Computed example of a mutant assay.
Amino acid sequence: MKLPVFRAPAHHTGVTSRVGTWLGITFGLCFVTGLLSHGAQHDWVWPTRPVDLYRVTQGVHVISGVASIPLLLAKLWSVYPKLFERPLVKSVPHALERGSILVLIAASFFELVTGLFNAAQNYPWSFYFPTAHYAVAWIVIGALLVHIAVKIPLIRRTLEPASEERTILSRRAFLRTTALTTGVAVVATAGVTVPWLRKISVLAWRSDGDLPVNRTAQAANIVVPQDWRLKAGAKSYSLADLQAMPQTTVDLPIACVEGWSQNATWTGVRVSELVGRGDVRVESLEKDGLYRASTLPEAFAQDPLTLLALQLDGEELSLDHGYPCRLIAPNRPGVLQTKWVTSLEVR
């Protein structure tokens, strides 16, 4: 008589399938919202409304990435004995399957680790993060889809009600612990984008208070000349000229690619009153930053909420926030809200 084999609860295929399903959901959310963020930054079709759309999608991107970390670790813990089974390679298809798993694990760790460093604005590498992160994301999602396609018969079987009653409670305890750990990780960091969680998000890298500054004037080597003037098409304006024009006040968030966002009140001149119709090239006093200039699509340039802001929360802009004037537009990534604006040119 063949006796049943009882595996350790954490290494049961049912546990692996359930954790893998959760991980597939968080990876899927992270991938889709990452594509949206890439599109918003690279002139894909992107709407001006709702004004909080980018704030939400980028918040979901970062939060789902954070949630993926404990899920990935739990997934690896549940399968690691199989990674060292002998023989390591049984056939060519088996070798290809194990190779794809290795690619998936390596690419997943690259995405999650570099994503965390990016959220903390720490870049201990020489490559350009956005390009590498975007490229490897396609590798991750491709390897994940191949892995799911190969394993789907096993997933279907193992997601059925378990038959080993002696281990079912322990497996559920492991799954509950994994879910709880993931929830704690999300709540501990989600305050960067969910205002009502900020008081309990102990690991949030941005909090209530003054509007955060990612790039200071000193870091950008900004020197505002005393004879500064804004060039807008064929016209030129001094700061006094802009202050004398009709002023508009709007409440709009700054939503950064690192996931943090915060509302602020902006006052200034509508861009549509300074330039004609068409896409607008916005140039900064910054000389060599990666985002020293941006292109404002016509839909944004003509939107009544898009301002060349002169004030922040009722006070003149500080130098770090873009003095003498900066761009603020609805539903736009923070890196494209150009500071220290010196010219607007219709393209």
Rank of each mutant, 00 (worst) to 15 (best):
F127W: 13
W138A: 07
V250W: 08
E286R: 12
L317Y: 10
G233V: 04
H42W: 11
T338R: 04
K2I: 12
A107G: 09
T21L: 15
V136A: 08
L242W: 03
S108V: 03
V51H: 11
A190S: 11
S17Y: 01
S108I: 09
A234K: 07
E298K: 06
Y54I: 12
D241F: 08
S294K: 02
W260A: 05
L102K: 03
L327H: 07
V5P: 00
E283C: 08
H94C: 02
Q262G: 02
A179G: 09
A8D: 13
K231L: 09
V140I: 13
E315Q: 15
E273K: 13
L36F: 13
V213I: 15
L239Y: 14
R198C: 02
E315V: 13
L239F: 13
W46K: 07
G278D: 06
L312T: 01
S272T: 11
S91Y: 06
A188C: 09
T181H: 01
E111M: 15
L76R: 08
P130F: 08
I222K: 10
H11L: 00
L29C: 14
N214M: 09
L308H: 04
G259L: 10
G39Q: 08
K75R: 09
A67G: 04
G209E: 10
A240S: 14
E111C: 14
L23D: 01
A217D: 04
F300C: 00
L96H: 01
I139A: 10
D52W: 14
K75V: 04
Q311T: 10
V192G: 06
G65C: 09
V60T: 12
L116T: 10
I148N: 01
H11F: 04
L104K: 02
R176L: 15
A255R: 08
I25F: 14
D251I: 10
T16H: 09
